[in-house]
Computed example of a mutant assay.
Amino acid sequence: MADQSNASMVAGRYGRALFDLASEQNSVAAVEADLRSLKTALAESRDLRALVGSPAFGAADKAKGLAAIAEKAQLHPTTRKFLGLLAANGRASALSEVIRAFEALAAQARGAVSAEVTTAVPLSAAQAKGVAAALRQALGKEPEIATRVDPAILGGIRVKVGSRLFDASLRSKLDSLKFALKRA
C-alpha cells in the first residue's frame, strides 16, 4: 500500500510539473492530446507497456524508446522533453499515473472534473450516458469520464473522482460479507 501511495505522489508531482510548464507555454491542449495518444498506445501495445514498466530496460533504453515513439508520433516538443526527463529520472513506469494526474489538472482548469469509471464489462452507450448524467448531478460539474474494464470486480461499478471512491462493485460487497461472517 505504501508503494502505491508513493507512486501516486510521484505521478502527481510529475503531472503537476508538466501541467505548469504546458500552462506557461500555452500548450496545455497540445500536450493533453499527446498524452491521450500515449494513453491509448499504452492500452493497446503490450510492447510499450513492457518498455516503460519492466526493470529489465534501463533508463537509457526507455529514453531511446520513448524518444523514438515521440518522434514517430510527432509529439509536441514539451511532451518530448518531458518523456525524456521522465525516463532519465527512472520514472517511466509511472507514465500512466502521470497522464491521469495531468488529465485531472487539465479538466479542473477547464471547470470539468475527471472521473474514472471501472466496470466488469464494457458500458453500453445508454449506460455511459446514465453514468455521466448521475455524475453531473452529483458533482455539479461536467464530468470527463475515462472508462476501464476490470473483470476482477465481478459486477457493479466503481467510480473514482479525485481522491473519492464510490465502490458499488460485487467484489467489494462480497469482501464486506466475508469480513462480517468472519466476525460473527
Rank of each mutant, 00 (worst) to 15 (best):
A2Q: 14
A2V: 14
D3I: 12
S8T: 11
A11P: 00
G12C: 08
G12E: 09
R13S: 07
G15A: 03
L18H: 04
F19D: 08
L21V: 06
Q25R: 15
N26D: 11
S27P: 02
A29P: 06
A29H: 07
D34M: 10
L35C: 13
R36H: 04
S37W: 08
T40K: 10
A41N: 05
A43F: 00
S45L: 10
D47P: 08
L48C: 11
L48G: 04
R49V: 01
P55V: 15
K64P: 00
G65F: 09
G65N: 05
L66P: 00
L66W: 04
A67G: 08
I69C: 13
E71P: 00
Q74R: 14
H76N: 06
H76C: 00
P77G: 09
T78P: 00
T79E: 09
L83V: 12
N89C: 01
G90T: 05
L95Y: 03
E97V: 06
I99H: 00
F102M: 09
Q108G: 07
R110P: 01
G111K: 14
G111D: 12
A115S: 12
T118Y: 01
T119K: 00
A120P: 09
A120G: 15
A126K: 08
A128D: 10
K129Q: 11
V131A: 14
A132R: 13
A132G: 14
G140W: 03
E142M: 04
R148S: 03
V149R: 02
D150Y: 07
D150H: 01
P151S: 08
P151W: 04
P151D: 01
A152C: 06
I153V: 15
L154K: 07
L154E: 04
L154C: 06
L154S: 09
G155S: 02
G156C: 03
R158I: 02
V159G: 01
V161Y: 00
G162D: 05
F166C: 04
D167F: 11
D167K: 08
S169A: 13
S169R: 05
R171H: 13
S172C: 04
S176I: 03
S176P: 04
S176H: 12
L177A: 14
K182I: 10
